[in-house]
């Protein structure tokens, strides 16, 4: 590509967003159909394999005294189970497998995205958006199925003065429909921004005078991104659980 040629000439070349380009894995620059095997496909598949490795091969011993990988699986299980139970209550436990799937996918994808030269699937709004919309639709349907019209009580703040209630209802309604937007952009934006910033610093590393600073900065930001990857997976999951709680117990 032209930009790459320019970069190799020795000038400063910043392409912090190139890492997010979706490309076919085989057959060069062909068109991307829905079934085309792309780098997205590859890294989604790796995420699936990692999850299988930890949760199927890691736990195959079924040991009462767990091995290391079994401990990881158990800690994640216990952590998520407790979170669902504490936040959304006992009747939310039957949604635990869905929430656990979501959490594991985001957690593993976030950390896989931090592997050098990898592709961060969770940095794409298509991925996080689909997750958020799925959560939004599921939670809304669960809310209406469980509570019928009573689910609309979520928007009617009965503890507020009567005059304020219609106003609050409009605000609540807007905030409810903004949920999937903030939910998806929070995750995608965080991951994308972190990776882009690292690439920018990597670009600065081409200048000898500031390359030590740039390398140190990349190291520091990488550490921060390790934190962000875990925290954002957790935030996405706990928000899902909170939305689920609203659907199961809509009264304020």
């Amino acid at each position: 590509m032209a930009t790459e040629a320019q970069g190799s000439e020795g000038g400063l070349a910043f392409h912090p967003l190139d890492q997010f380009i979706v490309e076919p894995l085989f057959g060069g620059e062909g068109p991307i159909h829905w079934y085309t095997i792309t780098n997205v496909t590859l890294w989604l598949a790796i995420a699936v394999l990692v999850i299988i490795a930890v949760f199927i091969f890691g736990t195959r011993g079924r040991a009462v005294v767990p091995s290391r990988s079994q401990s990881i699986a158990e800690v994640l299980y216990g952590f998520t189970y407790k979170m669902v139970e504490d936040v959304a209550g006992k009747d939310a436990i039957k949604f635990f497998p869905y929430i656990f799937t979501l959490f594991m996918f985001i957690l593993v994808s976030n950390y896989l995205g931090l592997v050098p030269m990898s592709f961060a699937t969770t940095s794409h709004i298509a991925v996080t958006g689909l997750l958020a919309i799925t959560v939004f639709l599921s939670v809304t349907i669960i809310g209406f199925v469980k509570n019928g019209a009573g689910f609309l009580g979520l928007f009617w703040v009965s503890s507020a003065p009567l005059v304020l209630r219609p106003v609050l209802a409009i605000i609540e309604l807007i905030s409810y429909f903004v949920r999937p937007v903030s939910h998806s952009i929070r995750l995608g934006g965080n991951i994308m921004a972190g990776h882009a910033v690292m690439k920018v610093f990597a670009g600065f590393a081409a200048i000898a005078a500031i390359s030590p600073v740039a390398v140190l900065s990349i190291t520091a930001i990488y550490g921060l991104e390790m934190l962000v990857a875990g925290v954002q997976a957790y935030v996405f999951t706990i928000l899902t659980v909170v939305y689920l709680k609203d659907a199961l117990h809509p009264s304020h």
């Binding site: 979706v22 991307i32 159909h33 829905w34 079934y35 085309t36 792309t38 997205v40 496909t41 989604l44 598949a45 995420a47 699936v48 799937t101 996918f105 699937t121 794409h124 298509a126 991925v127 689909l130 997750l131």
Partner: peptide, 13 residues
């Protein structure tokens, strides 16, 4: 690229 990402994401999930 959205149809591609969404399709493979659904498969993965």
């Amino acid at each position: 690229t959205f149809p591609n990402q969404i399709f493979w994401l659904l498969v993965a999930l």
